[in-house]
């Protein structure tokens, strides 16, 4: 069982070499979209939201 050389060919499957699972692709693009939404919503110069304002609001209640 001594196998001193590595046969790179054997490392990667041939039939599925180009496959990207659909569920993973949805995750990938979905998270990018969510990131854009989040960035826009919570950046003071874009949405006006700020940590400080959120605090002021929370103590007014």
């Amino acid at each position: 069982m001594i196998n001193d050389t590595d046969n790179l060919e054997a490392f990667e499957a041939k039939e599925t070499v180009n496959k990207l699972p659909v569920s993973w692709l949805i995750l990938f693009w979905g998270l990018i979209l969510w990131g854009i939404y989040y960035f826009v919503s919570y950046t003071p110069s874009i949405s006006g939201w700020s940590q400080e304002k959120a605090y002021e609001e929370s103590i007014r209640k």
């Binding site: 940590q51 400080e52 959120a54 605090y55 929370s58 103590i59």
Partner: peptide, 13 residues
Amino acid sequence: RPLKTEVMRYGEY
């Protein structure tokens, strides 16, 4: 942190 209970516990954020 600027969180209500935290400011109550420790003081100004």
